[in-house]
Design a protein around this nucleic acid. Structure first.
Length: 417
RNA sequence: GCGUCUGUCGUCAAGCGGUUAAGACCUCGGAUUGUGGUUCCGAUAUGCAUGGGUUCGAAUCCCAUCAGACGCCCCA
């Protein structure tokens, strides 16, 4: 036998027995997002590398170490590691800034990141997400979060925690970063290797470290004082306060997590995550926030925006498996040609029907029917001659012979019961 | 990129230095050429992720590689 070729590390087949879950996610997404006025958009799976470098940010791990980048006729192309940059690109390119705001878009599809696979993390994974363009008011932030919560509820997920935070605007955030670096400077040598890296790259992330020695450092009063201080400027604070007001009004339960910092460079002001306790260490099912400068950074007009993405594999991990549905009927017959004819007729009437393609014995056909279908339609020589069929309920073993013309209504009754 | 654990049939597995590599499920065939889901028989790994090594002898021990699970970093 020839050598087997395996799936690539960090990728997975989605098999027939799992597909029901995916259909469910996708159908509910269409339903709920549409009810909020969102339109689906499908952007290409690969884009110019520069889009992600400029969009996601070239200091991020995603861009620096995790992209699948390849060259083709002197162009550098990259498999999308996330879809906000692609949607923004399309928004700009297709002149959507001329549409009356808000412009609301949603998407679903595969994303690619070259990371070490683990629970809740693959190299090819799927996200659903929404992006809302053109509104700077906190009502937009609130609606977007509410949409996420409602989508999750519609899927049957209620046991989730919403965390929110405000990163401030570029101005007040710079101030904050400066203060953090200042107060930590004397401790720099005592920080773990990761934190020393983060000190320059992303001081905000420092505060989230899990290493014990770092935790003790961060617990010091003078450092806590800086962490806990409300660094954000008045405008940002007001925006955040209003957001909370909206969420309270809508009964969205949330906690403010001052250590919540999203790893993509484009976020400002509102950031949020929705977490589950049943997922292992990759516990965020949803992450998002406001990104008011991204459209401009990618060459469009100054356009405020908010959005989020959810990991579909992570959602599925929290949802019960769907049973594969059985066929309405399996035709048992020694005449393939008559069986085929009947099958086609029933399929056109909207029934799910199969029959034996390999001339198996009667008992084998019936055995097969009992495994895959709710009803067996027996089409033997007698029935063919008389223009009849025998319909057997495979659960109750009740069988009756009826005229072929009555078959449709018989099956319809069955389907509705 | 780093760390820990794990790779025996399509699936779940027993075996832990000398076995004919158990068993179960699935699949296929028969008992049973017009009545299934029960039952009973039978078939299905010359091979234990791959490549080296140790040994008289390796699925079992050692090394490397690959893959998987989980964690770190980071992220959905």
């Amino acid at each position: 036998m020839a050598k087997i070729i395996n799936v690539i590390k960090g990728t997975k087949d989605i098999l027939p027995q799992e597909i029901g879950q995916w259909h469910n996610l996708e159908q509910k997404a269409l339903e709920i997002f549409t009810s909020y006025g969102y339109k689906e958009i499908r952007t290409p799976i690969f884009e110019a590398t520069e889009l992600f470098a400029r969009g996601v940010g070239d200091t991020t791990d995603i861009v620096n170490k995790e992209m699948y980048t390849f060259e083709k006729s002197d162009r550098s192309l990259t498999l999308r590691p996330e879809n906000t940059a692609g949607v923004v690109r399309s928004y700009i390119e297709n002149g959507m800034s001329r549409l009356s705001p808000p412009v609301k878009l949603w998407y679903k599809g595969p994303m690619f990141r070259y990371e070490r696979p683990q629970a809740g993390r693959q190299r090819q994974f799927h996200q659903v997400g929404v992006e809302l363009f053109g509104i700077k008011q906190p009502a937009a932030d609130a609606e977007v979060i509410l949409l996420a919560v409602n989508y999750l509820n519609a899927l049957g997920l209620n046991d989730l925690e919403v965390e929110i935070n405000s990163l401030g605007c570029p101005e007040c955030r710079e101030e904050y970063k400066k203060k953090i670096k200042e107060v930590l400077k004397p401790e720099f040598d005592n920080l773990c290797e990761d934190c020393q890296n983060r000190y320059e790259k992303n001081p905000l992330r420092l505060l989230d470290c899990k290493v014990e020695s770092c935790k003790t450092i961060f617990a010091k009063p003078e450092i806590q004082k800086v962490i806990q201080s409300d660094f954000i400027c008045e405008d940002c604070a007001q925006h955040f306060a209003e957001l909370k007001k909206y969420l309270d009004k809508m009964n969205v339960k949330y906690t403010v997590n001052k250590l919540l910092v999203r790893g993509l460079d484009y976020y400002n002001r509102t950031v949020f995550e929705i977490k589950s306790n049943n997922l292992g260490s990759q516990n965020a099912v949803c992450g998002g926030g406001r990104y008011d400068s991204l459209v401009r950074n990618l060459g469009g007009e100054d356009t405020p925006a908010v959005g989020w993405a959810m990991g579909m594999e992570r959602l599925n991990a929290l949802l019960p498996k769907c049973e594969l549905s059985k066929l309405d009927a399996y035709i048992v017959s020694n005449s393939s040609i008559d069986a085929l004819e009947l099958a086609e007729e029933l399929r056109k009437q909207g029934f799910n029907v199969e029959f034996d393609l390999s001339n198996k014995k009667f008992t084998k056909q019936l055995e097969k029917a009992s495994k895959v279908a709710k009803y067996a339609i027996i089409l033997g020589e007698d029935e063919i001659q008389k223009g009849q069929v025998s319909v057997k309920n495979l659960d109750t073993a009740v069988q009756e012979t009826i005229d072929r013309k009555d078959l449709r209504s018989k099956l319809e009754n069955v389907k509705n019961s």
